[in-house]
Simulated assay, not measured.
Amino acid sequence: MSEHENLSDDQLLALLGRALADGAAVPQHRRDDARAAFTWRAVDAELAALLHDSALDAGAAVRSSDADAAGPRTLSFEQAGLTLELEHDLASGELLGEVVGEPGAVVRLERTDAEPVAVRADVSGFFRVEGVAMGPLRVVVERDDRVLTTPWVTL
Rank of each mutant, 00 (worst) to 15 (best):
L15A: 15
G71Q: 14
P116M: 08
H29C: 05
D33L: 12
L109T: 05
L20Q: 14
H88D: 01
R35M: 07
T39F: 04
R108Y: 00
D10V: 10
S92F: 05
L75N: 04
S65A: 07
E98P: 06
E98Y: 01
F127D: 01
M1H: 06
N6I: 03
L12I: 09
R35L: 11
V43F: 08
F127T: 08
V106W: 05
W152H: 02
G135H: 10
A21R: 14
T83G: 01
P136L: 01
F77S: 08
E98W: 04
V99D: 09
P72K: 12
Q79Y: 08
P103H: 05
D53E: 00
R18I: 10
A25W: 01
D32C: 09
E115L: 06
A69F: 05
D22A: 15
E102Y: 03
A91F: 02
H52T: 03
R143T: 13
A91I: 02
P103D: 03
L95E: 08
A21F: 09
D89H: 11
L84I: 08
V141Q: 08
L155G: 12
V147W: 02
D122E: 10
E5P: 03
F38T: 13
G125I: 05
A45C: 02
A55Y: 01
A45P: 00
V43Q: 13
D10K: 11
A70I: 07
G93Q: 06
R18V: 11
R120H: 08
R73A: 11
E98C: 13
P72N: 09
G135E: 08
D57R: 02
G17Y: 04
A67E: 12
E94W: 02
R35F: 08
D57N: 11
E5R: 15
D32H: 14
V62D: 10
A37P: 01
A37E: 13
S76V: 05
G125Q: 07
S2C: 00
E46A: 14
A36Q: 08
L86V: 09
A36K: 09
G101M: 01
L47A: 07
A48K: 10
V26E: 10
A61F: 06
R63M: 13
D122W: 09
E87T: 15
V129K: 06
E94S: 07
Q28N: 14
L16K: 11
S65R: 12
L47Q: 12
P151L: 04
D68H: 10
A61P: 03
D57G: 02
D89S: 07
V153G: 02
T74E: 09
L137K: 11
P136V: 00
G104C: 12
D57H: 00
A34V: 07
E142S: 14
R41M: 06
L20S: 09
L50R: 12
G131K: 13
Q28K: 15
R30L: 13
T74L: 02
A58F: 04
G135C: 07
D57I: 01
G17T: 15
S64A: 11
G93I: 04
A60I: 01
L148G: 04
W40S: 10
H88C: 03
A42C: 02
L56G: 05
V26W: 06
